[in-house]
Amino acid sequence: MDKFTKEERSNIMRAIKSKDTTEELMLAKALWHKGLRYRKNNKSVFGRPDITFKRYKIAIFVDGEFFHGYNWEERKFRIKSNQDYWIPKIERNIQRDKEVNEFLIQSGWIVIRFWGNFIKKNLKACVSVIEDEVVKAKIAFLK
């Protein structure tokens, strides 16, 4: 049973952003301060990654724990209301993430995915992973 009314829950869910989330902005700002220039939510790249370095074919996704199914096999049983909607929706999101990864990798892209909470707790490590990939891609690009 949901502790919110249907209208309250609807308003809460409507307020959740699909882009420019707190975690995305944290990561983007940190990359910008490191001198790394990128595009956000690039529609020309399959799957519309949150951050792209198109020249080097690097796609970065920031996945929210709820909508992308973090620890899904355990957490799906915690959904108490509207299970008939949420469980198939989140499982389809997980499947779509796999399809996007496969397509981009097949197309020669480097795909990096971070969970939102991981970014909050380990921002420097996330930036370091991306920096390393950009440096490797630059070297390969120049050859």
Rank of each mutant, 00 (worst) to 15 (best):
V135T: 11
I60C: 06
K121L: 10
H68L: 12
L36G: 07
K121P: 10
A15P: 11
V134S: 00
E65N: 13
H33L: 13
K138Y: 02
S81N: 12
N101W: 01
W86E: 09
S81G: 09
I94M: 03
K76D: 03
R75K: 12
F141K: 08
E7V: 12
F77K: 11
R39L: 12
F114G: 04
S10I: 08
K34C: 12
A140D: 07
M1Y: 06
E7D: 03
L25M: 15
E8M: 15
G35P: 14
T52I: 12
P88G: 04
F77D: 01
E7L: 08
R14V: 11
K138W: 02
W109S: 04
L123N: 05
R113C: 06
K120G: 13
V45T: 08
Y56W: 12
V129H: 00
R37S: 07
S107A: 10
G64V: 09
P49K: 09
K29M: 03
L36H: 11
R48Y: 03
N101L: 09
Y56C: 13
V111W: 04
S107I: 08
V129C: 09
I110D: 00
I105L: 12
A59H: 02
F114D: 00
K17S: 08
I60P: 02
E74K: 15
P88H: 02
D63V: 04
I16Q: 06
V129D: 00
I94F: 02
F61L: 11
I130T: 02
F77Q: 05
G69I: 10
A15F: 05
